[in-house]
Simulated assay, not measured.
Amino acid sequence: MSGHSKWSTIKRKKGAIDAKRGKIFTRLIKEITVAARSGGGDPEGNPRLRTAIAAAKSENMPKDNITRAIKKGTGEIAGEVYDEILYEGYGPGGVAVLVECLTDNRNRTVADVRHYFAKSNGNLGESGCVNWMFDKKGLILVDKETISEDEIMDMALEAGADDVVEEESEYQILTSVEDFEDVRGALEEKGVKFVDASVSMIPQNTVEVADEKVAKSLLKLMENLEDHDDVQNVYANFDIDDELMEQLS
């Protein structure tokens, strides 16, 4: 299982999503604000905003919060101005790591991100050092217990998905960025429930991490980055054996 999916699974097992709902709301509000600022406040003509609103609704964010975030982005009401920054580096074991941030203080953010990498025996790199190892794709995760492989395969491919990959506990539905909204919408109309649905950075290849100490350090790096207020998403190309992952979780 690749880093993104594996990390998503481990977070859910820890209950991190429910425990940090306030932090999730903060991240979603930032994303809605930036999406509205960059592409306008009409979700029908702004796919990024449409995706952000859908994610917010899936987390039961109140409609008023969503509306205020859009208005901050369009300038109708005062709000913070966030810079979008992508940090790249190598974690323990030579694992490639991408860190997507929205920040109102670049100096603070880069200092903190660099500190986390160094603390875990990794290093923050130059722009472009690992980005080429990932492809930007739509990623929809569906719990295997809710639908059969044949059903989800037929539905997803008919809707325009590129591929469906079976993992330990879920199906990964991969789409192009352009087709993501159409595929998600088609599956929603057919009653498919998602564990997660987002545009993500998918690693082209993975790095196997078999050493327990290295794996523990790597997961701590991921957790520290995820916990930072300025970090929106973290992607990595690690592959940790399921048995070792269970021990560490």
Score class of each variant (00 low, 15 high):
residue 115 H to I: 04
residue 115 H to C: 07
residue 116 Y to M: 12
residue 116 Y to F: 15
residue 117 F to A: 04
residue 117 F to V: 02
residue 117 F to K: 03
residue 118 A to C: 10
residue 118 A to S: 15
residue 118 A to T: 13
residue 119 K to G: 02
residue 120 S to P: 01
residue 120 S to L: 00
residue 120 S to R: 02
residue 120 S to M: 00
residue 121 N to T: 10
residue 121 N to Y: 12
residue 121 N to M: 11
residue 121 N to I: 02
residue 121 N to K: 13
residue 121 N to V: 08
residue 122 G to N: 07
residue 122 G to V: 11
residue 122 G to T: 11
residue 122 G to D: 10
residue 123 N to H: 12
residue 123 N to A: 04
residue 124 L to D: 06
residue 124 L to E: 06
residue 124 L to K: 09
residue 124 L to N: 05
residue 125 G to R: 09
residue 125 G to L: 10
residue 125 G to K: 05
residue 126 E to W: 11
residue 127 S to M: 01
residue 128 G to C: 00
residue 128 G to P: 00
residue 128 G to W: 00
residue 128 G to Q: 00
residue 128 G to E: 00
residue 128 G to L: 00
residue 129 C to S: 13
residue 129 C to N: 03
residue 129 C to R: 02
residue 129 C to A: 13
residue 129 C to Y: 05
residue 129 C to E: 11
residue 131 N to H: 02
residue 132 W to N: 02
residue 132 W to S: 02
residue 132 W to P: 00
residue 133 M to R: 15
residue 133 M to G: 13
residue 134 F to M: 10
residue 134 F to Y: 05
residue 135 D to S: 09
residue 135 D to N: 15
residue 136 K to F: 03
residue 136 K to S: 04
residue 136 K to A: 05
residue 137 K to D: 09
residue 137 K to S: 10
residue 137 K to I: 09
residue 137 K to P: 01
residue 137 K to N: 06
residue 137 K to R: 14
residue 137 K to F: 02
residue 137 K to T: 04
residue 138 G to D: 00
residue 139 L to F: 12
residue 139 L to G: 07
residue 139 L to H: 13
residue 139 L to V: 14
residue 139 L to Y: 10
residue 140 I to W: 06
residue 140 I to S: 10
residue 140 I to P: 07
residue 140 I to G: 08
residue 141 L to E: 04
residue 141 L to P: 01
residue 141 L to W: 03
residue 142 V to E: 12
residue 143 D to W: 00
residue 143 D to K: 03
residue 144 K to F: 03
residue 144 K to A: 11
residue 144 K to I: 09
residue 144 K to C: 04
residue 144 K to T: 06
residue 145 E to D: 07
residue 145 E to S: 14
residue 146 T to M: 05
residue 146 T to H: 06
residue 147 I to T: 14
residue 147 I to Q: 11
residue 147 I to C: 07
residue 148 S to H: 03
residue 148 S to V: 04
residue 149 E to F: 15
residue 150 D to R: 14
residue 150 D to H: 09
residue 150 D to I: 08
residue 151 E to A: 15
residue 151 E to G: 13
residue 151 E to W: 12
residue 151 E to R: 15
residue 152 I to M: 09
residue 152 I to W: 07
residue 154 D to Y: 07
residue 154 D to V: 01
residue 154 D to S: 11
residue 154 D to N: 13
residue 154 D to M: 08
residue 154 D to H: 05
residue 156 A to N: 09
residue 156 A to D: 04
residue 156 A to Q: 07
residue 156 A to W: 03
residue 157 L to Q: 08
residue 157 L to N: 06
residue 157 L to F: 08
residue 157 L to M: 14
residue 157 L to R: 08
residue 157 L to Y: 08
residue 157 L to W: 04
residue 157 L to C: 04
residue 157 L to I: 09
residue 157 L to E: 09
residue 158 E to F: 11
residue 158 E to H: 11
residue 158 E to K: 15
residue 158 E to I: 07
residue 158 E to A: 15
residue 159 A to E: 14
residue 160 G to A: 05
residue 160 G to R: 07
residue 161 A to K: 06
residue 161 A to V: 04
residue 161 A to W: 06
residue 161 A to F: 07
